[in-house]
Amino acid sequence: MSAVRFRNLTLGYDRHPAVHHLDGTVAAGDMLAVVGPNGAGKSTLLKGLAGAISPLSGAIELGDAGRGKIAYLPQAAEIDRSFPISVFELVAMGLWRRTGLFGGLSRADRDAVDHALSAVGLTGFESRIIGTLSGGQLQRMLFARLLVQDAQLILLDEPFTAIDAKTTADLLALVCRWNAEKRTIIAVLHDMETVRSSFPQALLLARRPIAWGRTADVLTPENLTAARRMTEAFDDHAAVCAVAA
């Protein structure tokens, strides 16, 4: 059973492609790492999956994981930490599909937020303003928001960047627990050691797919060199590729 199918997918901005002609299937329950050089289109792919941008051509087809069952963690740099909101309030935003944007929280909802904060080690931080958190605490909070969403398809964009080793280990354990619950995980990652040790499947991107399959088969020196060369040679001003009928 597939969670996601890409059909000759091209994604980009202002009609300039960032991901070219991607075909393939993510099976339900897969744990897939998306890797590649800077500028390879990895974050763009996750934004396409999350519905933040539309395909320039081709399609993304979702299986049992519909749009309402997707949880998306953007890069930490995209979070506005100046907004005066508490940790509890931000985590509770993960419930908005159930409560509505202005709906009140039930006792069960508040218990779900408390449980999520406990699971990521942030009990006692409920009233803290998010701008006062360290990088590791911020990422724990964002994982708590993912927890309350209870999604079947979880998208993570560089979830372990610029955080301490203890937080990385704790959050990686949480990701592995989600996968053990048969949730589908697609994560953009840079640390190849983490990919090799924890992610059975990998997609190597360099604006176009270089390799996709078992991690050991994908992360070969030859494939990594090809990805680097492809990204270096890519023309950011090239026209959109024609798609055969």
Rank of each mutant, 00 (worst) to 15 (best):
E222A: 15
A169Q: 13
F143W: 09
G41R: 06
G213D: 07
H20F: 13
R128I: 01
G36L: 08
R81F: 09
L11A: 11
P209E: 02
A71W: 04
H115M: 11
P159I: 02
G39T: 01
D23W: 00
P209I: 01
S57W: 06
V243Q: 14
A33F: 05
G29Y: 02
L147Q: 10
A169D: 13
A119W: 04
M1Q: 11
D150I: 05
N223H: 15
F83D: 00
E78L: 13
D114P: 00
I79T: 12
P17V: 08
D80R: 11
G48N: 06
R140S: 11
R229E: 15
A227R: 10
S197I: 02
R228H: 13
A242L: 13
A76R: 15
A202G: 00
S198F: 15
D30V: 05
L101I: 15
E222H: 09
L46H: 00
A52I: 13
I210C: 06
M141C: 13
V35Q: 03
A144S: 04
F160C: 05
D80C: 07
A76E: 12
A242I: 12
L204F: 03
I130K: 02
L219E: 05
D170V: 09
L62N: 08
A59Y: 06
T168M: 12
G124S: 09
L73Y: 08
L204M: 06
A40K: 03
E78Q: 15
F88R: 12
L62Y: 15
I53T: 06
H190G: 05
T161H: 11
L172I: 08
F234Y: 15
D64A: 14
G58W: 09
S134T: 10
L22F: 12
L90K: 01
L46Y: 05
L9W: 11
L22G: 09
C241M: 12
D236H: 12
R81E: 08
P209R: 02
T225K: 11
D23G: 09
R110Y: 07
T167K: 01
C241Y: 09
D157G: 09
G12A: 08
R67E: 07
L189P: 07
V4W: 04
G36R: 10
I210M: 04
G12I: 07
S43H: 06
